[in-house]
Write a protein that binds this DNA or RNA. Structure first.
Lengths: 341, 341
DNA sequence: CAAGCTTGCTCAATCGATGAAGCATGAATT
DNA sequence: AATTCATGCTTCATCGATTGAGCAAGCTTG
């Protein structure tokens, strides 16, 4: 490292001077198409050696400005506070890199303003494609992208204007509900209607899961009352509060519950602990989403694990196929083997 | 949206033509310093209207190429699979944006090659500063950044060449150990040496935590044998395997354990379940890291919660102060109130 | 009324990398 | 010997935004 403490970064012009050649030769060598440009192997080697010595790093801004494609792919994601989104982000980065794309990701905290702001910034960075994960207003983002000639896709929550890849929420919820009901029958000796808790009634996934929840009850000939459906939002406190209120209102609380996310499950578990049901082995729970610690909570809680690699494979398939029509692809979630406590 | 389906994105030249003015006026108006450039309010308004109509989005690549500062700040992070890193990333994004910086984050899966690769890419994107979180080889990254004249900082794991912000692992571990020992005394009626499990003996944090672990034992007059220290790595399977092996080797397993991360705790809990200790209320656990579900596991598991906002505040203070010397800042972790099951 | 100032803009160079077009040089072909 | 061809480079315009310099028109001021 015989480097002087420098203010300016090394450019191809510096390298050209050091190598006694032209910037365009340096460029050709460093971006790998020097054979096409008929640069001799000798010069190529020299340039690469000097670039190495100088610790040269490409100025991506300049390079991207000149090139037609940015190879940047953007994703917006609501939160990093659960395994589902964590695994989406990790898998996405991996798959993007495997395809020679540079992933940029930003977290928008379920805030519609931030979503739009983030999308605008990503467009400024010339993303070739933007994936809106769990977006509050996916169609707004699709419109912005369309206006900039950029492709967009929805993940986790569907939109009407762009292709969407989501879990098969109906089938997953139906199977999960069936399992909770079966467990409930086994433990209580009878089958009682369950409580559905968490999520927003206005979002597609929650609506579909409620539909699956109802269908499974119908399949088994159990009828569910409307007051057993508490789409109270995602935050743990909201679930806690909803349970408190439901407990006050006349009818006894069901012993079985379908919890709509791990985040809501936090609230449910807190409520259970607080209200003294902690060691009540007759409580039968299921959660639409997966977390390793939930398995260990020891109540034999059933979980649905969304198939993140499967979903992202579909996403990249769509990207590569160039499809733009607003199709809806539903990926079946994985339902792990029941683990009794 | 009277937009023709366009291939090219709208540029300031297009807007200039539409507004009957020059590109430089458009630029001045759109980047907000039109007052300095003495553009009339009338023209400014017209340009902004047209930009809005055309859905103009700045080409950041071009803009950054010309400007001296990129306002991009990079972070590399090992994993997204736990609350600690999730919260680091979320808080970092937030604080960066609050300072007018554009955060880019990438996950390197504890892979030294990927770390270097990611750092190189970030340098290409002209980051002004790179934060290496939990890096395997932070000094290598610092060197790369220094060669490019870019400032770098270490977070979570310290390096020798750049300022580092980490938790006060020694103090945190000492207090956590003290609490586990006290709980153990209370539940078992006597104080026995604990088992330390998880992490890499070679990493600074694990070493410091082991030091705190030993100090707390010494404080309370309990002596720990070497075979009670299992720095077996972070992955859950490694913790499980280490416990299996330790269980085979002669001496009985301690009833109290200091688990070095939530990830290792997954393995420990799995082992506990598998080996039939699940309902053994005499098991006394503590975990260096926080997860909401761990509270709910119901064994009164003590946790240390690292002070993520506190650490990131220090990080940004360092960035803003311009300090470059390799100081080591240790932020005290938060130790929540004990919650008995 | 000339000199100087203010206002409101435009011109043109620039950031660094890229690649089409072009220019020597020497070898091969007619 | 004249022409063609291949090889190995260089020159220069370009991507889109930014900004110092400069210019014209109107307005003051002595």
């Amino acid at each position: 490292m015989n480097q002087v403490k420098q203010t300016k970064r090394t450019t191809i012009y510096d390298l050209a001077e050091l190598a006694g050649t032209s910037a365009s030769a340096v460029s050709a060598v460093l971006n790998g198409n020097w054979k096409k440009r008929r640069i001799s192997a000798q010069l190529a080697e020299k340039i690469m050696r000097i670039a190495g010595e100088q610790g040269y790093a490409l100025n991506m801004q300049a390079s991207l400005l000149r090139r037609e494609k940015s190879h940047i792919i953007g994703m917006i994601v609501p939160k990093y506070d659960n395994r589902y989104f964590g695994s989406i982000v990790e898998t996405f980065e991996d798959m993007a890199r495997a395809r020679g794309l540079f992933p940029i990701i930003t977290c928008t905290r379920r805030d519609p303003e931030l979503e739009v702001e983030a999308a605008r910034t990503m467009l400024s960075y010339q993303v070739e494609c933007l994936i809106a994960t769990g977006a509050t207003d996916p169609d707004r983002i699709t419109e912005m992208c369309a206006a900039a000639g950029v492709r967009s896709l929805n993940l986790d929550l569907p939109g009407a204007l762009a292709p969407s890849v989501i879990s098969d929420n109906f089938a997953g919820a139906r199977e999960l509900t069936r399992r909770i009901l079966k467990n409930s029958e086994q433990r209580l000796g009878r089958m009682e209607p369950l409580l559905f808790i968490g999520g927003r009634g206005s979002d597609h996934n929650t609506a579909e899961r409620i539909r699956g929840f109802r269908a499974a009850h119908a399949d088994l000939g159990v009828s569910v009352h409307e007051e057993n459906i508490l789409a109270c939002g995602y935050a743990p406190e909201k679930a806690e509060k909803a349970l408190d209120e439901r407990a006050l209102g006349g009818n006894a609380l069901p012993k079985g519950m379908f919890v709509n996310s791990t985040i809501s499950l936090e609230g449910v578990m807190r409520w259970i602990r607080r209200s003294g049901h902690l060691d009540d082995r007759s409580l039968v729970l299921g959660c639409f989403d997966w977390d390793p610690f939930v398995t260990l909570l020891g109540n034999g809680i059933e979980m649905v694990r969304q198939d993140v690699p499967g979903m992202l494979n579909k996403v990249f398939e769509l990207i590569e196929s160039g499809a733009n029509k607003p199709v809806l692809i539903q990926v079946p979630p994985l339902i792990p083997q029941t683990q009794e406590a």
